[in-house]
Design a protein around this nucleic acid. Structure first.
Length: 655
DNA sequence: TTAGGGTTAG
């Protein structure tokens, strides 16, 4: 048969070929659709009208039956049929309509080619979309754009860029739609090569062709730079925009929020509220703003934002409510997360995942598992992220057997293949529990390539349990996979320092320097009376610093009398014990604790956030303060929460 | 005929 044919579709024509004998021999392929279109000269038959009406009513089955008796379907009839196949998510019907269309001489119609590509994109059949494109000789800008969209959604960014160059060579210029798809393609690549360079070239082309006044394109550009972590470029584009709307503001706020610049995100939000009259924030804006509050653990800010959401009636929008659940949990108010969740009329898998991870990050592993089961009981199927959340919760709580069983159930019961993230959770779970060999075995047996997250989990566990040999193995891979991540070098140096291997510590530090990298400085912050105060280990600019240091020396002396022994193995310098003690006493979280002791009233909980993992010494020191200073102290480190109360931490010293 | 920002984890 000359007509378009798909592989693996043996029953393809059975539905339509009841009169197949009358159709043979096959017609030669038409060259130009308009010239051979059998219906351009005649008005649509009654059958055509009936098919169109059935499609509009959503009755695809009957529409297809009528189609089998209609010798002259029109372009519009096919258009509605293809749309209907998309709505019904039916690939087999789609293929049948496609074959029918080809048999009736429409295979070179660029309008229908566009519709076919869009339909196959919707049905996740990228190969089919590509075949339609390849067979279409007259490629309008719509046809090109449809394929760009298809490939971008499928993560084939590099292929889009190749085609884009091909399109330009063919003399076809880009329009505003091509630019948005191609910019998105730069960040949608599954390949390992960064396409940022290409994104910048496209940016230049946009400027050359005067498309920089199109808000859609400039917003996509902001988003592209945001996803590459190029905040300066993104804010430059944003500031240069002559006209901004709610989407461009939201894109810039999201850019700050996801790139560790939560202060800036909140600042920009306030600017948006005060400086714009016609761009009032919407639900999407609020999600990013809540993310920023969560990142900073800015509870008071978060509560104000919650009030605004209620006043604006945005509290029924699921992503907003899920972001509220997460915000309260990350601000240390788990009970408020639960309350917000309980008040939801409708919940989706994201809402459940938010609650599961909320309990997880606070160390309530069993509760997280219970919620996971409740979710399934309520008929909501777990997603891949549900498993990341619940496995993470098991890891924080040391629930090894439960974690293993859940991991097994992924494939068996829920048909979800484990991804790199799930393996990383399992390695973390076993590694933390000092089952390092078992963790290494998991990596060996992985069916997919273990990425930096997996090796990073193993290295983190080696640091906790001081396993030099395995740490060297993991870091060797990590230095290849992500040579610019300073954290990995620091972890390896930590392992060497704990083993008193000072020459090795020195050489890791040299490697770090040679590669132009720096250790991320420890930073802690605290919200007191709606204001945020930030501390770094050596903070000469804080007017209270002297007072804070004096208080810390006094507290340290007192706590030593009560049994506190400074843990100095975290110091990466070969110094004497006294010097090491001085260094750990200046850690940012201790400064924040001291600030909290001075500036909070009796009975008020101290809430601190830290950008790195809490060190052993600060952990031990804070336990003593909670007992002898009679203070509740809540610390959120980069991984989880620590509730210090009466000399005990909720993590059970397992973090 | 086609388009831009957000949702959970690590």
């Amino acid at each position: 048969m000359w007509a378009f044919q798909f592989p693996q579709t043996p029953q393809l024509h059975s539905h339509f070929y009841t009169n197949s004998a009358a159709r043979l021999p096959p017609k030669p392929p038409p060259i130009f659709s308009v010239a051979v279109n059998p219906t351009t000269t005649s008005s649509p038959s009654n059958n055509n009208k009936l098919i169109q009406s059935l499609c509009k009513q959503g009755n695809l089955k009957q529409a297809l039956e009528v189609l089998s008796n209609e010798p002259n379907p029109t372009q519009h009839t096919y258009e509605l049929l293809l749309l209907s196949c998309s709505h019904h998510n039916s690939l087999s019907d789609a293929e049948n309509v496609h074959c029918h269309l080809v048999d009736n001489g429409f295979d070179q119609d660029p309008f229908l080619a566009t519709k076919l590509i869009n339909m196959y994109t919707h049905l996740d059949s990228i190969d089919h979309a590509r075949q339609v494109f390849d067979k279409t000789r007259r490629r309008t800008i719509y046809v090109w754009n449809a394929l760009f969209r298809a490939l971008t959604l499928a993560g084939c960014g590099e292929e889009v860029l190749d085609l884009y160059r091909q399109m330009n060579r063919s003399g076809m210029g880009s329009d505003r739609f091509s630019y948005t798809y191609v910019l998105k393609a730069c960040v949608s690549s599954y390949g390992v090569v960064s396409l940022l360079k290409h994104g910048k070239e496209i940016h230049a082309s946009i400027l050359r062709h005067g498309y920089d006044r199109i808000v859609h394109i400039m917003t996509t550009l902001i988003d592209m730079y945001a996803r590459f972590g190029c905040v300066t470029y993104a804010s430059f584009v944003f500031n240069e925009m002559a006209v901004k709307n709610v989407v461009s503001w939201s894109a810039m706020i999201a850019c700050y929020a996801r790139n560790g610049m939560a202060f800036e995100a909140l600042e920009l939000f306030h600017e948006m509220m005060t400086e714009t009259q016609d761009s009032s924030p919407n639900s999407v804006t609020m999600v990013s703003v809540l993310q920023a509050c969560a990142a900073l653990a800015a509870l008071e800010q978060g509560k104000l934002i919650h009030g605004y959401i209620l006043r604006r009636g945005l509290d029924s929008i699921l992503p907003v409510v899920s972001a509220l659940v997460t915000m309260y949990a990350r601000c240390g108010k788990l009970e408020l997360s639960q309350r917000v969740f309980d008040q939801m009329d409708k919940r989706d898998v994201v809402s459940w995942n938010s609650l599961i991870s909320s309990y997880g990050v606070h160390g309530f592993g069993q509760k997280a598992i219970q919620i996971f089961k409740e979710m399934i009981y309520h008929g909501v199927s777990p997603s891949s992220i549900s498993f990341v959340s619940v496995l993470g919760a098991c890891s924080h709580a040391g629930l090894i057997e439960e974690g293993k069983m859940l991991f097994q159930s992924m494939r068996k019961e829920h048909m979800i293949g484990p991804s790199v993230e799930h393996y990383a959770c399992m390695v973390d779970l076993l590694g933390r529990a000092n089952k390092l060999e078992e963790a290494a075995k998991i990596i060996e047996d992985m069916r997919i390539e273990p990425g930096p997250k997996v090796w990073g989990s193993l290295l983190g566990s080696c640091r906790i349990h001081c396993n030099v040999e395995l740490a060297e193995r993991a870091s060797k891979r990590l230095f290849e996979l992500e040579p610019t991540n300073a954290g990995n070098y620091v972890l390896l140096a930590d392992v060497y320092a704990a083993a008193n291997m000072w020459d090795e510590v020195k050489s890791v530090k040299k490697l770090l320097e040679a590669r132009g990298l720096q250790k991320v400085p420890g930073r802690s912050w605290i919200e007191v009376k709606r204001k945020m105060y930030s501390f770094v280990s050596v903070d000469e600019f804080n007017p209270q610093a002297e007072q804070l240091h004096a208080l810390l020396i006094k507290l340290s002396t007192e706590m030593k009398e009560k049994g506190y022994v400074p843990q100095t193995k975290v110091v990466l310098y070969d110094l004497d014990t006294q010097e090491k003690e001085r260094i750990v006493l200046g850690h940012s979280e201790k400064l924040a604790v001291a600030f909290g002791l001075i500036n909070t009233s009796k009975g008020e909980t101290i809430r601190i956030t830290k950008n790195l993992r809490l060190c052993e010494d600060c952990h031990s020191f804070t336990k003593f303060i909670s007992k002898f200073g009679n203070k509740e102290i809540l610390v959120r480190d980069v991984n989880r929460f620590h509730h210090f109360h009466d000399g005990v931490c909720s993590c059970g010293d397992y973090w």
